[in-house]
Design a protein around this nucleic acid. Structure first.
Lengths: 188, 188
DNA sequence: GTCTATAGGTGGATAGAC
DNA sequence: GTCTATCCACCTATAGAC
């Protein structure tokens, strides 16, 4: 594992701050303090905060999709794959974070409009992946539900996003675990 | 209808800004501009922003609960009551807003800790009300599902909150409507 | 690439006249 | 209750030395 570049360290710090406080509640000064560099150095890598935010979402999206690809690479059952998916969200909760996509969605009214398309794509890719997994589950008779797969995929994602918000605000990790379990049981 | 007091007008403006931009993305200057008063006047009614935020949540919570009380005052079926509940959320979406509780939950990491208990209560009251409605629906054989009522109530609320986030970010009101429909159908 | 220094603006908040 | 005036801290961002 090579030493992370300053650029990556900045993104890591910014992502942590964005997931815990929100996009409009952290500053270059916060990152500078955490990394022990000057604000001007951050502006060298990301001239404007909008540049930083855009890169933040893009990196998160690509890393998240790469993670999804590895979730269903084996021949595991759809139920197990969905459990692993839910665990991706659950694990962010342990650090007092919520999904970066969900956070950005809540801040969308105060962010540059140029970020909206990327954010929409993030959600659409999640739903598409869930649709694929649920379709496979139906074909294998591991999943069984009425209504369109698309609708159930949207509900699944929305419930996890909202569940993260609630569990984090109430400081109740068990709430999220029960919620995810119920969601998956409902599809069987 | 008496003329609203300045205090109420301030709360109305602040609530609109908080629901669209977030708690850390509006200022006293924004409210002052909208109402045509000076910032100092707002500080007279709400000395600190924390005071304003606390009152904002408390008013929202009490108004929301009053609204819920009128939703199931008649002998309507549980399905209809749940549809009306979902419509409460749907209607905020039309103004480009999300639920104030959901917004505050996403900002909780950048808000005073004193607000957390009130926010937890907000979610707990929503879930308790949903549990009551779902229990009645089960007794009347209008609703039919496995798993605890508590879990399904949590899922229901979480999915609506997350659905608001997604539909607002993607500017797709129909997404929310389909999502709500699927959620209710799943309980029958 | 990182630094010092600084500009120009906005944040929440207060004092005191009316 | 609302105003003018002001304070100080913090924000994003840039210029220019090293």
């Amino acid at each position: 594992m090579p030493t992370p570049s300053t650029r990556d360290l900045i993104l890591d710090s910014a992502q942590s701050l964005a997931q815990t406080r929100g996009f409009n509640a952290f500053s270059y000064a916060d990152i500078a303090l955490e990394l022990g560099v000057r604000k001007a150095s951050i502006h060298y890598h990301f001239p404007s905060k909008q540049d930083l935010e855009a890169e933040l979402l893009e990196r998160y999206r690509s890393q998240f999709m790469a993670g999804l690809a590895s979730l269903d690479s084996n021949g595991d059952s759809s139920v197990v794959v969905l459990q692993r998916y839910a665990h991706l969200y659950s694990s962010t909760l342990k650090n007092g974070r919520i999904c970066l996509g969900g956070m950005m969605a809540s801040d969308i009214g105060a962010l540059p409009e140029t970020l909206a398309p990327s954010l929409s794509s993030f959600f659409e890719e999640q739903v598409s992946w869930l649709v694929k997994v649920m379709n496979e589950g139906k074909e294998n008779n591991e999943l069984n539900f009425s209504g369109t797969v698309q609708s159930h995929a949207s509900v699944f994602l929305a419930a996890l996003q909202g569940g993260l918000l609630m569990a984090n605000a109430m400081n109740d990790q068990a709430l999220f675990e029960r919620l995810a379990e119920t969601l998956i049981a409902e599809l069987q």
